[in-house]
Protein backbone atom coordinates (compact mmCIF):
# COMPACT_ATOMS: atom_id res chain seq x y z
CA UNK A 1 0.00 0.00 0.00
CA UNK A 2 1.65 3.16 -1.12
CA UNK A 3 -0.79 5.40 0.66
CA UNK A 4 1.86 7.82 1.89
CA UNK A 5 1.38 10.10 -1.08
CA UNK A 6 -2.36 10.44 -0.45
CA UNK A 7 -3.85 12.79 2.07
CA UNK A 8 -5.16 11.04 5.18
CA UNK A 9 -8.94 10.68 5.49
CA UNK A 10 -8.77 10.68 9.26
CA UNK A 11 -5.94 12.27 11.19
CA UNK A 12 -5.69 12.09 14.99
CA UNK A 13 -3.04 14.19 16.65
CA UNK A 14 -2.00 13.68 20.29
CA UNK A 15 -5.44 12.53 21.28
CA UNK A 16 -6.22 12.24 25.00
CA UNK A 17 -9.37 11.35 26.88
CA UNK A 18 -9.27 11.54 30.66
CA UNK A 19 -11.82 10.18 33.12
CA UNK A 20 -10.61 11.74 36.32
CA UNK A 21 -7.07 10.47 36.78
CA UNK A 22 -7.51 7.69 34.25
CA UNK A 23 -6.29 8.34 30.71
CA UNK A 24 -8.58 6.08 28.71
CA UNK A 25 -7.06 7.37 25.49
CA UNK A 26 -3.45 8.25 25.98
CA UNK A 27 -1.68 10.19 23.27
CA UNK A 28 -2.99 8.39 20.20
CA UNK A 29 -1.55 9.72 16.98
CA UNK A 30 -2.70 8.04 13.82
CA UNK A 31 -3.57 8.62 10.17
CA UNK A 32 -6.07 6.57 8.25
CA UNK A 33 -5.86 6.74 4.45
CA UNK A 34 -8.66 6.27 1.95
CA UNK A 35 -9.21 2.58 1.30
CA UNK A 36 -7.53 1.50 4.54
CA UNK A 37 -9.02 -0.98 6.94
CA UNK A 38 -7.59 -0.15 10.33
CA UNK A 39 -8.11 -2.95 12.80
CA UNK A 40 -7.97 -2.03 16.50
CA UNK A 41 -7.30 -4.71 19.06
CA UNK A 42 -6.25 -4.85 22.68
CA UNK A 43 -7.33 -6.21 26.04
CA UNK A 44 -10.63 -5.26 27.66
CA UNK A 45 -10.51 -1.74 29.06
CA UNK A 46 -7.67 -0.74 26.73
CA UNK A 47 -9.69 2.26 25.56
CA UNK A 48 -10.67 1.03 22.10
CA UNK A 49 -14.33 1.96 22.34
CA UNK A 50 -13.49 5.21 24.08
CA UNK A 51 -11.18 6.05 21.19
CA UNK A 52 -14.05 5.48 18.75
CA UNK A 53 -16.39 7.48 21.01
CA UNK A 54 -13.94 10.37 20.91
CA UNK A 55 -13.48 10.50 17.16
CA UNK A 56 -17.20 10.04 16.48
CA UNK A 57 -18.08 12.90 18.82
CA UNK A 58 -20.00 10.88 21.43
CA UNK A 59 -17.47 11.75 24.10
CA UNK A 60 -15.40 14.86 23.38
CA UNK A 61 -11.62 14.61 23.56
CA UNK A 62 -9.81 16.06 26.58
CA UNK A 63 -7.08 17.35 24.30
CA UNK A 64 -5.65 16.78 20.85
CA UNK A 65 -7.29 17.13 17.46
CA UNK A 66 -9.26 14.97 15.07
CA UNK A 67 -9.69 15.92 11.45
CA UNK A 68 -11.72 14.22 8.77
CA UNK A 69 -10.77 14.82 5.17
CA UNK A 70 -8.69 17.81 6.16
CA UNK A 71 -11.51 19.35 8.18
CA UNK A 72 -11.11 19.82 11.94
CA UNK A 73 -13.98 17.96 13.68
CA UNK A 74 -12.57 17.81 17.20
CA UNK A 75 -15.35 19.86 18.74
CA UNK A 76 -18.21 18.65 16.56
CA UNK A 77 -21.19 16.77 17.95
CA UNK A 78 -21.96 13.29 16.62
CA UNK A 79 -24.66 14.57 14.26
CA UNK A 80 -22.36 17.00 12.46
CA UNK A 81 -19.58 14.44 12.30
CA UNK A 82 -22.03 12.06 10.67
CA UNK A 83 -22.95 14.73 8.13
CA UNK A 84 -19.28 15.08 7.24
CA UNK A 85 -19.08 11.43 6.30
CA UNK A 86 -18.22 9.35 9.35
CA UNK A 87 -20.67 6.71 10.58
CA UNK A 88 -20.31 4.23 13.38
CA UNK A 89 -21.89 1.17 14.93
CA UNK A 90 -22.06 0.24 18.58
CA UNK A 91 -20.76 -2.66 20.55
CA UNK A 92 -24.17 -3.22 22.12
CA UNK A 93 -26.91 -3.95 19.65
CA UNK A 94 -28.20 -0.42 19.41
CA UNK A 95 -31.24 0.18 17.26
CA UNK A 96 -34.46 2.12 17.11
CA UNK A 97 -36.38 -0.64 18.78
CA UNK A 98 -39.94 0.34 18.05
CA UNK A 99 -39.33 1.10 14.37
CA UNK A 100 -39.31 -1.37 11.52
CA UNK A 101 -36.02 -2.57 10.07
CA UNK A 102 -36.63 -0.46 7.00
CA UNK A 103 -37.33 2.68 9.04
CA UNK A 104 -34.16 2.07 11.02
CA UNK A 105 -32.15 2.25 7.83
CA UNK A 106 -34.27 5.12 6.58
CA UNK A 107 -33.17 7.18 9.60
CA UNK A 108 -29.61 6.89 8.39
CA UNK A 109 -30.55 7.70 4.80
CA UNK A 110 -32.81 10.62 5.67
CA UNK A 111 -30.73 12.38 8.29
CA UNK A 112 -27.18 11.14 8.00
CA UNK A 113 -26.03 12.32 4.62
CA UNK A 114 -24.97 15.94 4.67
CA UNK A 115 -26.47 18.74 6.72
CA UNK A 116 -30.24 18.90 6.33
CA UNK A 117 -30.61 22.62 6.91
CA UNK A 118 -34.27 23.20 7.65
CA UNK A 119 -35.87 19.83 8.44
CA UNK A 120 -38.02 18.49 5.63
CA UNK A 121 -41.23 16.53 5.71
CA UNK A 122 -40.69 14.24 2.74
CA UNK A 123 -38.18 11.64 1.62
CA UNK A 124 -36.50 11.78 -1.74
CA UNK A 125 -36.41 8.86 -4.20
CA UNK A 126 -32.66 8.83 -3.84
CA UNK A 127 -32.98 8.17 -0.09
CA UNK A 128 -35.30 5.27 -0.69
CA UNK A 129 -32.84 3.87 -3.19
CA UNK A 130 -30.08 4.16 -0.62
CA UNK A 131 -32.20 2.26 1.91
CA UNK A 132 -32.71 -0.56 -0.60
CA UNK A 133 -29.02 -0.56 -1.42
CA UNK A 134 -27.97 -0.73 2.24
CA UNK A 135 -30.46 -3.47 3.07
CA UNK A 136 -29.32 -5.46 0.09
CA UNK A 137 -25.67 -5.06 0.99
CA UNK A 138 -26.27 -6.75 4.34
CA UNK A 139 -28.74 -9.18 2.83
CA UNK A 140 -31.82 -8.02 4.75
CA UNK A 141 -33.99 -6.81 1.89
CA UNK A 142 -36.67 -9.40 2.68
CA UNK A 143 -36.90 -8.43 6.36
CA UNK A 144 -37.60 -4.71 6.10
CA UNK A 145 -41.08 -4.98 7.62
CA UNK A 146 -39.97 -6.65 10.87
CA UNK A 147 -39.85 -4.60 14.06
CA UNK A 148 -36.24 -4.02 15.06
CA UNK A 149 -36.78 -5.10 18.66
CA UNK A 150 -37.79 -8.55 17.56
CA UNK A 151 -35.09 -9.54 15.10
CA UNK A 152 -32.32 -11.99 16.16
CA UNK A 153 -28.83 -10.90 17.25
CA UNK A 154 -27.06 -11.31 13.92
CA UNK A 155 -29.75 -9.30 12.13
CA UNK A 156 -29.53 -6.57 14.73
CA UNK A 157 -25.82 -6.22 14.11
CA UNK A 158 -26.35 -6.18 10.37
CA UNK A 159 -29.17 -3.68 10.76
CA UNK A 160 -26.88 -1.32 12.65
CA UNK A 161 -24.37 -1.68 9.86
CA UNK A 162 -27.01 -1.04 7.19
CA UNK A 163 -28.22 2.14 8.88
CA UNK A 164 -24.62 3.34 9.03
CA UNK A 165 -24.06 2.54 5.37
CA UNK A 166 -27.22 4.41 4.44
CA UNK A 167 -25.60 7.65 5.63
CA UNK A 168 -23.10 7.33 2.73
CA UNK A 169 -20.01 7.36 4.93
CA UNK A 170 -16.49 7.87 3.69
CA UNK A 171 -15.29 6.38 6.96
CA UNK A 172 -17.10 3.64 8.82
CA UNK A 173 -16.29 2.84 12.45
CA UNK A 174 -17.35 -0.66 13.40
CA UNK A 175 -17.26 -1.66 17.06
CA UNK A 176 -17.10 -5.43 17.61
CA UNK A 177 -19.31 -6.56 14.73
CA UNK A 178 -18.99 -10.28 15.43
CA UNK A 179 -18.86 -10.47 19.24
CA UNK A 180 -21.05 -13.37 20.35
CA UNK A 181 -21.63 -14.78 16.87
CA UNK A 182 -20.99 -18.33 15.69
CA UNK A 183 -18.03 -19.04 13.34
CA UNK A 184 -20.43 -19.46 10.48
CA UNK A 185 -22.05 -16.09 11.18
CA UNK A 186 -18.62 -14.50 11.50
CA UNK A 187 -17.78 -15.62 7.97
CA UNK A 188 -21.05 -14.11 6.80
CA UNK A 189 -20.21 -10.73 8.35
CA UNK A 190 -16.71 -10.93 6.91
CA UNK A 191 -18.14 -11.34 3.42
CA UNK A 192 -20.34 -8.28 3.93
CA UNK A 193 -17.39 -6.18 5.10
CA UNK A 194 -15.36 -7.31 2.10
CA UNK A 195 -18.22 -6.05 -0.02
CA UNK A 196 -18.00 -2.67 1.72
CA UNK A 197 -14.27 -2.51 1.09
CA UNK A 198 -14.93 -3.10 -2.58
CA UNK A 199 -17.29 -0.13 -2.53
CA UNK A 200 -14.32 1.95 -1.47
CA UNK A 201 -15.42 2.68 2.09
CA UNK A 202 -12.61 3.23 4.55
CA UNK A 203 -13.09 1.23 7.73
CA UNK A 204 -11.91 1.32 11.33
CA UNK A 205 -12.69 -1.96 13.00
CA UNK A 206 -12.57 -2.98 16.66
CA UNK A 207 -12.64 -6.70 17.25
CA UNK A 208 -11.51 -9.31 19.73
CA UNK A 209 -11.81 -12.16 17.28
CA UNK A 210 -8.23 -11.92 15.99
CA UNK A 211 -8.74 -14.17 12.99
CA UNK A 212 -11.40 -11.76 11.79
CA UNK A 213 -9.31 -8.69 12.56
CA UNK A 214 -6.15 -9.94 10.91
CA UNK A 215 -7.83 -11.23 7.77
CA UNK A 216 -9.69 -7.99 7.08
CA UNK A 217 -7.28 -5.28 8.18
CA UNK A 218 -4.71 -3.59 6.02
CA UNK A 219 -3.21 -2.05 9.15
CA UNK A 220 -3.49 -2.89 12.82
CA UNK A 221 -3.40 -0.78 15.97
CA UNK A 222 -3.08 -2.52 19.31
CA UNK A 223 -4.01 -0.50 22.38
CA UNK A 224 -3.12 -1.12 25.99
CA UNK A 225 -3.95 1.21 28.91
CA UNK A 226 -5.07 3.80 26.38
CA UNK A 227 -1.74 3.82 24.56
CA UNK A 228 -0.75 2.46 21.21
CA UNK A 229 1.65 -0.45 21.68
CA UNK A 230 1.73 -1.57 18.07
CA UNK A 231 0.89 0.05 14.82
CA UNK A 232 1.70 -1.53 11.49
CA UNK A 233 1.00 -4.32 9.07
CA UNK A 234 -1.05 -7.27 10.30
CA UNK A 235 1.55 -9.87 9.34
CA UNK A 236 4.21 -8.23 11.53
CA UNK A 237 1.91 -8.18 14.53
CA UNK A 238 2.51 -11.76 15.60
CA UNK A 239 6.21 -11.17 15.69
CA UNK A 240 5.83 -8.31 18.18
CA UNK A 241 6.91 -9.53 21.61
CA UNK A 242 4.96 -6.95 23.61
CA UNK A 243 1.68 -7.63 21.82
CA UNK A 244 2.01 -11.35 22.36
CA UNK A 245 2.81 -10.74 26.02
CA UNK A 246 0.07 -8.30 27.08
CA UNK A 247 -2.66 -9.30 24.71
CA UNK A 248 -2.52 -12.47 22.65
CA UNK A 249 -0.60 -14.94 24.73
CA UNK A 250 1.80 -17.47 23.25
CA UNK A 251 -0.84 -20.09 22.40
CA UNK A 252 -3.14 -17.79 20.46
CA UNK A 253 -0.21 -16.24 18.63
CA UNK A 254 0.92 -19.68 17.49
CA UNK A 255 -2.54 -20.59 16.26
CA UNK A 256 -2.87 -17.30 14.40
CA UNK A 257 0.54 -17.68 12.78
CA UNK A 258 -0.57 -21.03 11.50
CA UNK A 259 -3.77 -19.50 10.19
CA UNK A 260 -1.96 -16.64 8.47
CA UNK A 261 0.44 -19.06 6.83
CA UNK A 262 -2.49 -21.02 5.49
CA UNK A 263 -4.10 -17.84 4.26
CA UNK A 264 -0.84 -16.89 2.46
CA UNK A 265 -0.82 -20.22 0.64
Amino acid sequence: MSSETKKPLLACRNLFKHFGALAAVNNIDIDVYPGDVLGIGGPNGAGKTTFIDVISGINPASSGTVSLDGHDITNYGPDRICHRGMARTYQLNAGFDSLSVRDNVLVGAAFGSGDQGIPKFRYSKEMMARVDYALELVGMQDRGHLIAREVPVLDRKLLMLASAIATEPKLLLIDEPVGGLTPHEIDHVMEILRGLMKEGITIILIEHVMRFLLQLSTRVLIMHHGESIYEGAPDQLLADQQVVEVYLGEGTAKRLRHLMDQGAK
Binding site: P78, D103, V107
Partner: peptide, 15 residues
Protein backbone atom coordinates in the same frame (compact mmCIF):
# COMPACT_ATOMS: atom_id res chain seq x y z
CA UNK B 1 -39.11 8.65 16.98
CA UNK B 2 -35.43 7.91 16.45
CA UNK B 3 -34.54 10.33 19.26
CA UNK B 4 -37.12 8.69 21.48
CA UNK B 5 -35.93 5.16 20.86
CA UNK B 6 -32.20 5.79 21.14
CA UNK B 7 -30.88 9.35 21.49
CA UNK B 8 -27.23 8.40 21.18
CA UNK B 9 -27.67 6.32 18.04
CA UNK B 10 -29.95 9.01 16.59
CA UNK B 11 -27.19 11.56 17.06
CA UNK B 12 -24.73 9.22 15.39
CA UNK B 13 -27.10 8.99 12.43
CA UNK B 14 -27.08 12.74 11.97
CA UNK B 15 -30.07 13.88 14.03
Amino acid sequence: KALRDNPELAASRGI
